[in-house]
Amino acid sequence: MTVSHQQANRRSHSAGDHGFPWSHIAGYILSVVLTASALWLAVAHAGRPVWRLSAILSLASAQIFVQLFLFMHITESHGPRYHVLALVLAAVFTLTVVMGSIWIMSFNGTQAY
């Protein structure tokens, strides 16, 4: 809340910001391609389901990076990029919650009911 403090370590926002939105268009094309590939993989009859499931999950994960880097300007910050650290930690805990819960609640496949 104090007067804006000047810090030496400035953000680095992409050079194309004032010109044609190349990065955004690249991002959009990528997201469309990734989504279409996932859809194709899911409805295709080729390959084992487990393999295809991992593939579509990987494609979804790739989209996170498209959004973060090409749309959300994640690299911008004054000073240290604490928000990146926060997101990394959030990703770790998200994986912990999802994979941990599945591991715990599947009872090694020996549910009694």
Binding site: S31, T35, A38, L39, L41, A42, V43, A44, H45, P49, R52, L53, I56, L57, L59, A60, Q63, I64, Q67, L68, F71, M72
Partner: peptide, 22 residues
């Protein structure tokens, strides 16, 4: 808004695509 897009991509994948996975 972008964040909601990311979440949707996972709903698309985990709910819908996994649901119709042949």
């Amino acid at each position: 808004w972008h964040f909601l897009d990311i979440v949707w991509v996972f709903i698309f994948t985990v709910v819908y695509l996994t649901g119709v996975l042949k």
